[in-house]
Amino acid sequence: MPARRAVDPAELRSALIAVGPWLRGEDQVVPARAQLAAAVRLSARTLEHTAPGSSVEVRVPPFVVVQCIEGPRHTRGTPPNVVETDPRTWLLMVTGRLGFDDAAAAGSLDVSGSRAREVGHWLPLLRL
């Protein structure tokens, strides 16, 4: 499978700015599905390129699953190292408004496997 193209940083910034008021709590209305999907997918794919590898799977249902972090490749069945969360928690971590460990402690982030916490090293991707 060929590697995905790198995410344009301006495109990522634009997508995150579009959902910024919701993340900051200034707007209680959830962004349109297309806006939310763009922000989640672009940020996850940025992580995929920033921390290349396939030892940790990052899941943000229903929008994206990416593999990152160098190490043993996972190809079948349930991966040994998984990070899974909802779109809002993911975007809060991506923008630096919520720490990885804080999200895990609050129960809004599922982290399993010995390498999964390494994702926290790569966040935030873009502070707003």
Rank of each mutant, 00 (worst) to 15 (best):
V29T: 15
N81C: 00
L109P: 03
D27C: 12
A18M: 06
R45F: 11
S55L: 06
G25R: 04
V83Y: 04
T78M: 07
W90G: 05
V94R: 14
A32H: 09
W122Q: 15
P72N: 05
L42T: 10
V83D: 08
V58D: 03
Q67G: 07
W90R: 09
M1V: 14
D102R: 11
G96S: 11
I17V: 15
A116L: 03
R45M: 07
A10F: 14
R76C: 01
G113S: 00
L42Y: 10
V30Y: 04
A39S: 07
W22A: 01
R97K: 15
L109K: 13
S43N: 07
R97T: 14
P21F: 00
D102T: 12
R88M: 00
V94D: 11
T50W: 09
D110Q: 06
G107A: 01
L23W: 03
W22D: 03
A44Y: 09
P124H: 11
R73C: 05
V64E: 13
V111I: 02
V65M: 11
A39K: 09
T75F: 13
P31K: 09
V7A: 09
R127K: 13
W122H: 15
F100W: 03
E11Q: 12
A6T: 14
A116V: 04
M1E: 07
P80S: 00
A104K: 08
A32Y: 12
E26C: 04
G107D: 01
W90D: 09
H74W: 09
D27M: 06
F100D: 13
V66K: 07
R73P: 09
L16Q: 03
F100E: 08
A103D: 06
C68F: 02
F100N: 05
E48W: 02
S54F: 08
A116K: 02
L128D: 11
S114D: 13
F63G: 01
A10K: 14
V56F: 05
E70A: 14
G113E: 00
R76A: 05
H74A: 02
A32E: 15
A18P: 04
A44C: 12
A51L: 15
A15P: 11
V56D: 03
H121L: 08
L125T: 10
G99Y: 05
G20D: 06
F63S: 00
E11G: 03
V30D: 00
R117K: 14
G71A: 05
E57T: 04
A6D: 15
D101C: 02
V119S: 05
D102Y: 01
R117G: 07
P31N: 06
P124M: 08
L91H: 07
P79Y: 07
P21D: 00
L47Q: 08
H74R: 02
S114P: 06
A103R: 11
E26V: 08
L109I: 12
